[in-house]
Design a binder for these strands. Sequence first.
DNA 1: TTGTAAGCGTTATCAG
DNA 2: CTGATAACGCTTACAA
Lengths: 294, 294
Amino acid sequence: VSPATAEKVERAARELRYRPNLVARSLRIERTGTVLVVFPVLANPFFAQVHAGATRAAAEQGVGVVVCPIQDEDGREPLPIPSQTLDGVLTCSLDKSQLWETWGDTPHVALDSNPRHGVPAVNMDVAGGARQAVDHLLSLGHKHIGFLRSEREAWTFGTRHRVVRDRTRRRARLTEVATSFALADAAGNAERILGVHPRPTAVLCEDDNLAVAVYHAAHRLGLRVPEDISVVGCDDLPLARLMSPELTTIRLPAEEMGAHGIKVLLALMAGERQRCPLLETTLVLRESTRAPRS
Amino acid sequence: VSPATAEKVERAARELRYRPNLVARSLRIERTGTVLVVFPVLANPFFAQVHAGATRAAAEQGVGVVVCPIQDEDGREPLPIPSQTLDGVLTCSLDKSQLWETWGDTPHVALDSNPRHGVPAVNMDVAGGARQAVDHLLSLGHKHIGFLRSEREAWTFGTRHRVVRDRTRRRARLTEVATSFALADAAGNAERILGVHPRPTAVLCEDDNLAVAVYHAAHRLGLRVPEDISVVGCDDLPLARLMSPELTTIRLPAEEMGAHGIKVLLALMAGERQRCPLLETTLVLRESTRAPRS
DNA sequence: TTGTAAGCGTTATCAG
DNA sequence: CTGATAACGCTTACAA
């Protein structure tokens, strides 16, 4: 374009306060440039990390990301889902296949979900992480392990549950307590698992926040971590390094999963179906685990 | 419509797997039925409550809500903002007027923000809440109050800061420490404020999470709450009732603000400008405050 | 009750 | 390099 006309056009645009109509543009080019990321709840640092990874990966391709949770923080009340004009949907930690119909045939990739649900899934090696955690406790000599697990049904929780049961079989006693992630529940259930007789010498938690509840309960019961009770968390939230003693926890590649999910989704939108490798998880050893008292 | 034709149409629709194109529909009716809610960060229960209120109020009018944070959890890295096709924008706890230009002239209401920024603002009585908290401590007889405040500039923090300074003037000594909300910072700064000589007998925190950090620091320094140090939080997160001792904190009407914000926004979209009353805040007295040792 | 046509604001194509 | 025109898929108004 000639610089002269370009200038003329730009001035006219400014004078008329011209704003391109993005809806019309989307209609014409047949894409909105936006994908939706759906989480169970908003206020969880793990999901925030997934989101950060997804958002940055999407931005690299000029795609925007908006978020929507399906529950409020108490984890009870379902929240309405926006039926929006979107290029794609990325769900995280949701197994509800009924929910997936909300978006008809818009491209959909699931993070941290059952890979057998017909939706391309990007997953972390949840089983491997759990295995490392259990093996760590067994190798320290623990013979009675508590498992403060999620009462919610989900692929992650299911696989973790299975691994913990299988791996402890004939090697240690296992005491399970199911809980919601709501703080009040977690606090009560943490006390319950520490109140079992005989008491477990170590507790495995589905989540770092639950580990906080266990610390809290231990404190109330006059037990010391890790002298009286070892604790292992999951997610490696920033919080984990600030607890005293610092929390041994399973690190999950949250950001990486978010970024990877977006790549698979964008590929899917372009018509290509990609292979999805399991993302690596590692046990981060800190101060909250040691051998049980003899 | 005749039931016969209706049936015929519906069958044809099913057979052809017809999906209405929402973009085309939006172009024609000139609205998308979606508003964007923007928060500083994702993983904060306070914002989650605001979101729940906003989402439910919007759903009542058939409007969907999507969310977007402008920072990642560390509070450092800015995240890209989706420039989307939206009917309106609700920002929460953001003062950055530059950011507001992102949405051109789409209707915009600001929550918890400076009312003098030309954008309709729905606010809580932050000043009143802070006043109650300070007065409570003064009436207990505290003569040296610590204020663990946010280092970020924002309308809320500014007003609270002003109230705390004005209200303590000539009535108590005031020791201020500014901090970010990042856990590592908070932990360090909590220790700093308790390390001051002479030590404050009470600490006021910008946020319940900061109060957790203060509890933590107190514990490390061998101080007991509230015998050695009184603590007051802000937000009344679910967490507050689970701390031991239970936290005295300023309750902010988060859900109400979200719902009210949506109402004002929808009215604005319809062309009406509404008055915005200050939403009530109350100090919730629990166990973390008492008179100082004499 | 059913069918037709115009128009929303873009982008893309094709003459001038 | 410029200007006119069709098409995206829907809603709405009006005619058959």
